[in-house]
Nucleic acid binder design. Structure first.
Lengths: 345, 345
DNA sequence: TTGTATGCGTTATCAG
DNA sequence: CTGATAACGCATACAA
């Protein structure tokens, strides 16, 4: 007994009608008599008829599914975003296909091509931390394919973009450390190719400047893989702690950087905040558990997913190309806990 | 400039050939002359021709994509499984569509129907913790639709199943607590509808029995949502700690139960292992960070995803139905850290 | 009110 | 070696 779905043709044959009559009856067209409708609908119901979405896609030249490119789903920030994306997508009858780049440029290119060739109607993209060349996306975009960037956006392309106010997040975090009395604040940053890294480091520098604190280039460390690999974080922190004047506080500017930084400090038995102050970007709901008194910058991830998806679907469903693309900037949240309050020590 | 992909028909028209010739040239058929092939291939290359997978699906009655049903992707265990699934799926040219039930039965039914109607070729399922009625899956299965269960399997259906040796995992964990000197071991368990819950509780009881320890029903607490909600864990633990003879150790039998249990204990300022022993199932790579000396049962999640996918694809691609379904049981790993060693206290 | 014919992009089966 | 045609499941313009 092979899996064979019942089609309109089957119904037509069984009821002695034409396929078009059945099709119209199922779509509740005004042209069909109530009796015929009733018979058809009943038969369809009983035989569990489901329209074949592939045939529909072929006809309508749209698949009602959107693709997502993220680095990792095993990252609380991104899994929250995906939940936001899903909630809107399902609402509007869209399916969602997730793919992970694992922070690899090659993998990202493969995934984009794969998704595009799978006839998705649009793409939500947060680029990998290795990505510099954008041909794989520009190519699609130039042909009018709907793309919305979120979080890790790309300046060279004109389309909708949704980000958090990274500058402000980092500024506030750094300022908080300064006000807590720290004098030598280091920045643990992600890949230098990423927009978010630049924005966050910008906020960090501006805060130092505004409070008349010296900016020391040696205090900024980049991790190409955004902290995904423990080794790169370890390496960066080793470098920082070997400096003549060791930093007395660190701002970790991404989820994975924060957790791996905590792991490192715990491994080296360096107490937070007694020996070193720490503040980090983190959307992990276990932050409090990880480090009872760690202050964090939290991003409105779910909302970000929702907004990105709304924009994308709007882009997909508008017949003519939209000219003025939006750039939505969401406010981050600074969750203060006692750790970084040096005065309280 | 609308997004319009180039089709075989376009190529045919441009080169003054027929669509069938172009089609065959692209598939490198022996019937086509080398020169014609060369011209066609060149044109296709230059105009970035990509076969339309939807048209292909319609023709071949297969979409080369598989669906996944899990409760949450924001759960280290499941995100590791998904990575395993992806690695095999991409290898074999399959696309993967993930959907989350968020532990809701209704949501699961909707997702299954949605995925099935989206013409996926097969389904990888780990049921929600609310699921009792299986009609939505039986229905598909009876019609010959390929389904593989993993982790949270279902006894009533005859198909491939991939699980971890949950009995052994819980047995070993409980035995470890016993050998560490704990006398009153409570079990924090997931939904009683789930196979894994039954198996784990079985291992727990057997370990108590084998060591001549009394089994007290009041020491077993269920959380319907598998610990996804903090409140249910809090409620269960409150109950346990209000007993006349309070348990001196807890085995938490799922990822979320473990982390939320830790959160609770931290919140109530109950020290582990000084005041209460704890061992838990956990695939979180931050476990060590969460609680420096927590022993855990770790499941081979990635491998589980790989095996499930291999079986599913085998099922999809075998022409005749496979009669003897496999049941793969993978070994869990008991990672011992000092916490539970009461002797060391 | 219902039926017939066509097309979406592709491949397979014929016929040249 | 190449071309015409049908078919996959559905919707719709056009006929009746």
């Amino acid at each position: 007994m092979k899996f064979e779905a019942v089609t309109i043709k089957d119904i037509a044959k069984a009821l002695g009608l034409s396929t078009s009559t059945v099709s119209r009856a199922l779509r509740d067209s005004y042209e069909i008599s109530p009796e015929t409708k009733k018979i058809v609908l009943e038969y369809a119901q009983n035989n569990n008829y489901r329209p074949n979405p592939i045939a529909l896609s072929l006809k309508e030249k749209r698949s009602r599914s959107i693709g997502i490119i993220v680095c990792e789903i095993a990252n609380s920030f991104f899994s929250q975003i995906i939940n936001g994306i899903e909630s809107i997508a399902y609402d509007k009858g869209y399916n969602v296909i997730i793919s992970q780049s694992h922070e690899s440029y090659d993998r990202e290119v493969i995934n984009v091509q794969y998704l595009a060739s799978r006839s998705i109607d649009g793409l939500l993209v947060s680029v990998s931390s290795e990505t510099q060349d954008l041909e794989h996306l520009k190519n699609l975009h130039e042909r009018g394919f709907p793309i919305v960037f979120f979080d890790r956006i790309v300046e060279e392309m004109e389309t909708h973009k949704v980000i958090v106010d990274n500058f402000k997040g980092a500024y506030d975090a750094t300022e908080h450390l300064i006000k807590s009395g720290y004098k030598h604040i280091a920045a643990l940053a992600g890949s230098e190719f990423l927009s978010i890294t630049k924005e966050r480091l910008g906020g960090y520098r501006k805060a130092l400047e505004d409070h008349n604190m010296e900016y020391n280039e040696a205090y900024t460390k980049h991790c190409l893989h955004g902290g995904m690999l423990y080794d790169e974080v370890e390496h960066a922190l080793n470098d920082l702690l070997e400096l003549k004047i060791k930093p007395d506080a660190i701002i970790a500017s991404a989820d994975k950087l924060t957790t791996n930084c905590l792991s490192y400090l715990k491994k080296r038995k360096i107490k937070v905040p007694d020996e070193i102050g720490l503040i980090g970007f983190s959307n992990l709901d276990l932050t409090e558990l990880l480090s009872p008194s760690l202050s964090v910058v939290r991003q409105p991830a779910f909302e970000m997913g929702e907004i990105s998806t709304e924009l994308l679907i709007q882009l997909i469903e508008s017949k003519r190309p939209i000219r003025d693309f939006e750039r939505r900037i969401l406010p981050p949240e600074l969750l203060i806990r006692e750790s970084t309050d040096k005065n309280a020590k």
